[in-house]
Design a protein around this nucleic acid. Structure first.
Lengths: 328, 328
DNA sequence: CTGAAAGCGCTTACAG
DNA sequence: CTGAAAGCGCTTACAG
């Protein structure tokens, strides 16, 4: 009926007299009438809801800050456009995958942390716009959008920084729980390539895989010789590494330099402050969300790939190695 | 039709032959049939979705850890029961308040951070079960459940700890952005009472209100005399205070003791490690969510008030004051 | 310009 | 035991 038209002000052409409209509005207010959103959604086939899919909801404190920055960006962009955000876990039971495609979402924001992209492929068959928050790999379906970061440039900046300081042999640390995150692999590969291109040395035995608490540090330090800098794949693991170094009595950066990725305000609270490559996660999340909304509302909009710039924040955890030769 | 019955296994009484059922299932699988959840929700008047309402989505890093622990608990409890979680902001525009009550949620989990409870009262008129994550105050509507924490016992433990160490005059710090959080006020009041009951001194001028970065520390330190310990209302503000103390050249705990609330793993990463009262946020969130689901599914269940115990984690940021008299 | 009617896709009470 | 039909509460195309 025309009640609908009045209440939602679809009055491009006035179809009810102003008096009638006023009456309708008054009655609606008196009854505290609220349109049922379920009925509307069913009718319009839209929900104004975005599913944010995590491969894992952070249980360990490491990715908490990443997760929060991301969510902060997503929610503010979504709310500004009157969209709601529903949190999903891609791994809960087989039926729950269907729950991603049963009409409840207008689009998905996929926070990828593993290389298993079976569900992601399902998503590309459902006609749902998807934005993936991760690097695009060759095995990803073509109709998704991607928001990523200059991992290569960041790895090069780290390599150059260490080389300038006079380091010659370094190690790269990945977290056990991140081993299947394409971004972790990429960073390692990019860094190794960059480091060697600068004439640096990195041995296979120095590609380390540590638990998320970095408790392996002490044992590693006992038996290692010749490595003067540690490049750690993420900020959180780097922070844990600093802590373990302190417990072990290793002075950073005098005895060992440490660099991380994903630099954030947390890096200013460690001691020494952590040198790290900065990833603007919140801005990336805002961009991803806005782009997703655009794809939802203008179905013509094709998939896109956004790559955000990296900046190396040099703080206190890197220095010349003890027996440094002349730098480059 | 009976397709519905077959697919959802509502087969208490067999209403279709097994063969027919098999055919139905096969066809459904072939067509990749997925029941539309919007239609089902409309029909059943249930959404299996919980709205998690924040007065503010954390933009400043302070409450990020709190927020993440909470969300981790909420999501795991909700997912385990096949519920979805939608994030909401209570403050976005007037219309968005209606969006909380327009049928999209089966229940609300209200993370309160302010004493403005107008929307909370609205919620009590809508017939929606609500669980509030905060202290219950006398002005709160009676039909909500509450999940809170022994703020009083925690305040007393902090007071006793400081008194035992030999402190006699202390200050209490609240964050500017938390001034309207009932929990912040309560902690201050409880602490002041406990401290005085132990014979300690706390002056009105020593009830401090600092920005969330604790940058006020330095100015305060210049002109203050006689305060030997700082009780900080939250963990995050306490961590910032430690950092500012370090920048100012104040040695904690030699020159000044610092205690916080909401102790978490973060307290082990500061230097010195932060003494703080522990609040089991994740467990509280799990409890709150399970209780909410119970109220949703058994409408007879009345509102309840859960109070979680507090434990004081004594770490390194508290010590005897320099000119300590004999302790109690 | 307006109002009555169709239909979104389910579930379930009901008639056969 | 089964199938056809009503109805959840909206929005919008359509007839008057």
């Amino acid at each position: 009926m025309s009640v609908s038209k009045v209440l939602h002000g679809r009055g491009t052409n006035v179809r009810v007299s102003e008096e009638t409209a006023a009456v309708i509005r008054k009655v609606a207010a008196d009854l505290e009438y609220r349109p049922n959103v379920l009925a509307r959604n069913l009718r319009t086939r839209k929900t104004r809801t975005i599913g944010v899919v995590f491969d894992e909801i952070p249980q360990f404190s490491g990715i908490v800050r990443y997760f929060s920055d991301l969510l902060s960006g997503v929610t503010s962009a979504a709310f500004a456009n009157n969209y709601s955000i529903t949190l999903c876990n891609s791994l809960i039971g087989p039926s729950s995958q269907d729950r991603l495609f049963d009409g409840r979402f207008d689009g998905l924001l996929w926070v990828r942390m593993t290389d298993d992209n079976t569900v992601l492929r399902q998503a590309s068959q459902a006609r749902l716009p998807v934005v993936v928050f991760n690097e695009k790999t060759s095995e990803d379906p073509p109709n998704h959008s991607f928001v990523s970061w200059q991992n290569n440039a960041a790895a090069q900046a780290v390599a150059e920084h260490l080389k300038r300081l006079g380091h010659s042999r370094v190690a790269f640390v990945t977290g056990e729980r991140s081993i299947r995150n394409p971004e972790a692999t990429l960073r390692q590969n990019f860094f190794v390539r960059a480091w060697r291109s600068y004439g640096g040395e990195i041995r296979t035995e120095d590609l380390l895989l540590w638990s998320e608490t970095a408790e392996n540090f002490s044992a590693w330090w006992q038996k290692q010789t010749g490595v003067t800098a540690l490049v750690v794949w993420s900020e959180s693991l780097a922070i844990m590494t600093l802590e373990q170094a302190r417990l072990t009595g290793v002075q950073v950066p005098r005895d060992l330099s440490v660099v991380g990725f994903d630099s954030s305000v947390q890096c200013d609270l460690t001691q020494p402050k952590l040198t790290a490559a900065h990833q603007p996660i919140r801005e990336m999340a805002v961009q991803a969300t806005n782009h997703l909304i655009q794809r939802i509302e203008s179905p013509g909009t094709g998939p896109q790939h956004f790559v955000f710039p990296s900046v190396l924040d040099v703080r206190e955890s890197t220095a010349r190695p003890l027996n440094a030769e002349k730098s480059l």
